Amino acid sequence: MSEDYPPLVVRDVSLTLPSAAGPVEILRDLSFSVAPRERVAITGPSGSGKSSLIAVAAGLERPTSGTVELLGRALAKMDEDGRARLRRGRVSLVFQAFHLLPNMTAEENVAAPLEIAGIADADRVARDWLDRVGLSGRLRHYPHQLSGGEQQRVALARALAPRPALLFADEPTGNLDAVNAAMVADLLFGLVSEEGAAMVLVTHDAGLAARADRQVRLGGGVAQPA
Rank of each mutant, 00 (worst) to 15 (best):
L71W: 09
V40D: 05
G118E: 00
M104Y: 15
I54A: 06
Q215M: 12
I42W: 02
W129H: 02
L139Q: 03
L146V: 01
D128S: 14
I116W: 13
Y142A: 06
V56I: 01
R85S: 05
A126F: 13
V10T: 07
V179D: 12
L100D: 07
A209S: 07
L166Y: 06
L176T: 00
E195Q: 13
D12K: 10
L191I: 06
V133K: 08
W129D: 00
S92N: 04
I54P: 07
A21P: 05
A206I: 09
D121L: 07
D123H: 13
T67K: 13
M78C: 02
V91M: 04
H141A: 14
L139D: 03
L71K: 08
L27H: 06
A112R: 12
Q152S: 00
A21H: 09
S2R: 15
A197I: 01
G190W: 09
F98G: 01
S52E: 08
D121I: 06
V184L: 10
E171S: 10
S65L: 10
H99N: 14
P18A: 00
G148W: 11
L176R: 10
L156S: 09
A106N: 10
L70H: 05
G89L: 09
V184P: 05
R87F: 12
T67C: 12
G149L: 12
G134F: 12
G89K: 08
P23S: 02
T67M: 10
G219D: 15
E61T: 13
V184W: 06
A212Y: 07
S14I: 01
Q145W: 09
D213Y: 12
A178W: 14
D79Q: 03
P6N: 08
L15S: 03
E171L: 12
P36M: 09
S2T: 15
